[in-house]
Design a protein around this nucleic acid. Structure first.
Length: 576
DNA sequence: GCCGTTTTCGGCCCGACTGTTTTCAGTCG
């Protein structure tokens, strides 16, 4: 059983308990366990084998036993009993916006509705008419909700959501009476996917601004529209939609509101607990004395954190992953401005869209000090990988561009396939002619964790390999990460002086945040690359940097924050 | 079910919007 499997079982238990009307606190603890396991960078089975399940946050004696049973037998009696009490297909009904456990239970007990299809049929044949709590508007909302569920494929890649978010922010900024507007939610925290978009604005006439917002031309449906809050659906293209929430607050509440709507939910719960312990209460308007007492802080996030004896915590860290235990802010947390070059990109020599000159020019326009051209190796046939003879000519071509490049170092490298047995797609004699080598797996990812790990470690041990690119091969929302032992890989990378990539493409973001954090903790150097196949792809660096910040990476942890001479020294130190 | 600077029991974060049960429960974030 993978971590995701264990997490799913705990989530399903929580959902089923909720439909059954169990204690909210008990339900929450199952959700907490699901989240803890789902977030783990390493295998929960290894933690179980060491007898350390109870050390995980939110995992007590009862949950530890359930996890162990699940890992040993693949089954859990509580889960199976709950599945017998009510049909499992009820879980899919919870996905309908506006539909919660109480309504699902009511539909099941009073009308025997067990699935999305059954609900669609019941609505179509007016079977819900006269049901208590289900008026005409509720039924219409359910019908549209089912349609939305079919159109939306869950969470959206941050790269797909970002342009729409920026457009909406600019649009709200132009509305009459709006003084300030900012992103909040998981977009601001830089998560790899977002569930919805959150905008927060300062303005006096909330109702007027919300009204104006719901009339924006891109809005396909208005979900809610009140005096301080509006929710709408906006098209993302290709028939996909995303929910966008706008909150309007007075200027004096902006800090409290921004903190509140940035989340994460878990971070906020911890923060409010901290407030309660001091006899205060924290909401989106202010940190204040309990029972409507005087306001302690509200204007800025900094004031609120300071009142709770905390440094201001950067949004990417707000995940309840230990950031509230920090006494001091992390020095030198990586920023976009720290990035001085890119070491993984493609040209028309393999499957890129631009020539060497065009890619170099695009990097120059971003202010980079160096680039490395890394086209595909011969085994990547579909990507027009280079046979050795072509590579030799390509090396000459890149060196020529480099010799004519003023103020920016141009290196020649390759993205070399790691073959099934861990060997590389070019001979050492050829690799030795390159300035820098990126190695990666492109096929045969379906193997087990032991095989994948040894395959990657074999590549790390080559004296010519400088970066392992997209180490798990995942494609967000498309292909799962291949299982790897990140601790073993990170230790070997640290020992040999090999960097591990955070691929900044929003399709990949690989290593992901939690993996990168483990890698850094074990002493490995990270390297953030856009894997650009088009000059526009350089813009994805912001997502890679946010992922790195979520991994608590500092400037010194990242290879391409260093100068060209230091990068060259990183290579030289590993060569024979 | 979890947890502890109110520590082994008794708490566990907070408010907006909607529909409709006309005083509030359900859902959401």
């Amino acid at each position: 059983m993978t971590n995701a499997d264990v997490a799913r079982v705990f989530r399903e238990i929580a959902d089923l308990l909720e439909i059954g009307g169990d204690s909210g606190f008990r339900i929450n603890s199952y959700r907490r366990v699901a989240r803890t396991i789902g977030d783990l960078p390493n295998e929960v089975a290894d933690i179980a084998a060491r007898g350390e399940l109870g050390k995980l946050p939110g995992v007590g004696k009862a949950s530890a036993e359930k996890i162990a049973t699940l890992l040993e037998t693949g089954r859990l009696s509580l889960r199976e009993e709950l599945g017998k009490k009510v049909p499992e297909s009820l879980l899919e009904l919870l996905g309908i916006p506006g539909m919660g456990p109480k309504k699902v239970a009511l539909l099941y007990h009073e009308r025997g509705i067990e699935s999305l299809d059954a609900l669609s049929r019941a609505i179509a044949s007016n079977q819900l008419d006269g049901m208590k709590g289900f008026g005409a508007k509720s039924i219409a909302a359910m019908r549209e909700g089912i349609e939305f569920l079919k159109r939306s494929a869950g969470r959206t890649r941050i790269g797909a959501a970002w342009p729409t978010a920026e457009l909406l922010r600019a649009c709200v900024a132009e509305m009459p009476g709006v003084q300030r507007v900012e992103h909040a939610g998981s977009l601001r925290r830089g998560r790899e996917t977002v569930g919805d978009l959150d905008l927060l604005c300062v303005g006096a006439d909330g109702r007027g601004i919300v009204q104006c917002f719901t009339e924006y031309p891109g809005v396909s449906r208005v979900l809610a529209s009140g005096g301080t809050k509006g929710s709408v659906l906006v098209g993302l293209g290709q028939g996909r939609e995303i929910q966008v929430d706008l909150r309007v607050v007075p200027a004096e509440s902006f800090g409290a509101a921004w903190q509140y709507f940035t989340g994460s939910k878990e971070h906020n719960v911890r923060l409010r607990e901290r407030a309660v312990k001091r006899g205060w209460t924290l909401n989106e308007y202010a940190l204040s004395e309990a029972d409507g007492g005087k306001v302690i802080a509200s204007k800025t996030e900094e004031e609120i954190y300071a009142a709770l004896d905390l440094p201001w915590i950067v949004p990417e860290l707000r995940e309840d992953r230990g950031e509230l235990d920090l006494r001091e802010p992390i020095d030198d947390l990586l920023t976009l401005e720290d990035i001085r070059g890119e070491l993984h990109m493609h040209t028309t020599a393999s499957d890129g869209k631009h020539t060497i000159e065009q890619m170099v020019q695009a990097a120059r326009e971003r202010g980079y000090k160096y680039v490395c051209i890394t086209d595909h190796s011969q085994s990547s046939v579909i990507a027009n990988g280079l046979k050795p003879s072509r590579l030799l000519r390509h090396i000459e071509a890149v060196r020529k561009v480099g010799s004519e490049s003023r103020g920016m170092k141009v290196w020649v490298g390759a993205e070399v396939d790691i073959l099934a047995d861990g060997s590389l797609d070019y001979e050492d004699e050829l690799l030795a002619q390159l300035d820098f080598v990126v190695a990666s797996v492109h096929f045969g990812m379906g193997k087990d964790i032991e095989h994948n790990t040894q395959r990657t470690i074999a590549a790390i041990r080559s004296p010519y390999v400088n970066v392992i690119a997209h180490p798990t091969g995942r494609l967000i929302n498309k292909r799962d990460a291949m299982p790897i032992d990140i601790e073993a890989i990170a230790k070997e990378a640290a020992r040999t002086g090999t960097a591990l990539e955070i691929n900044a493409s929003s399709y990949r973001l690989d290593l992901r945040d939690q993996h990168a954090r483990v890698a850094r903790d074990l002493g490995a150097t990270l390297c953030i690359n856009c894997d650009a196949h088009h000059r526009e792809h350089f813009k994805q660096m912001r997502f890679g940097v946010q992922t790195a910040r979520r991994a608590w990476l500092r400037k010194q942890d990242v290879l391409n924050t260093r100068g060209a001479a230091e990068v060259a020294e990183f290579v030289r130190a590993k060569r024979p």
